[in-house]
Amino acid sequence: MEGYSEKVMDHFFNPRNVGTLEDANAVGEVGNARCGDIMKMYMKIEDEVIVDVKFQTFGCGAAVATSSMVTELIKGKTIEEAMKITNQRVAEALDGLPPVKMHCSNLAESAVKAAIDNYREKQNGEKK
């Protein structure tokens, strides 16, 4: 099988920001167990800035590594900036992914968007 880059292995073996956030005000979950990967993203957003982020992932090495990397990329960023994160950007930050694993990086992008959507829905709810 095509190997993982050192960065992927590093993020798999030492994932950053693993876990849950009790005071999260944005939670997004994507993927499904049937396909073998699920990512759940927890964020604490203050004044449109992601001040903290954690993740839980069920999946392969690439799924864990992309989850870890995407949390690093968005931590401290505004939600507007975070929404611009693409799967390509995540894969590049990991020095690339084997072609069969590219869908894992889609999942990371989608998880961020799902969490931010969740936050906006809640905000709209409060305004009403």
Partner: peptide, 13 residues
């Protein structure tokens, strides 16, 4: 609750 490839990578280590 867990996925096989992840187990293999950690076993390999």
């Amino acid at each position: 609750y867990i996925e096989g490839e992840s187990i293999l990578l950690l076993l390999d280590m």
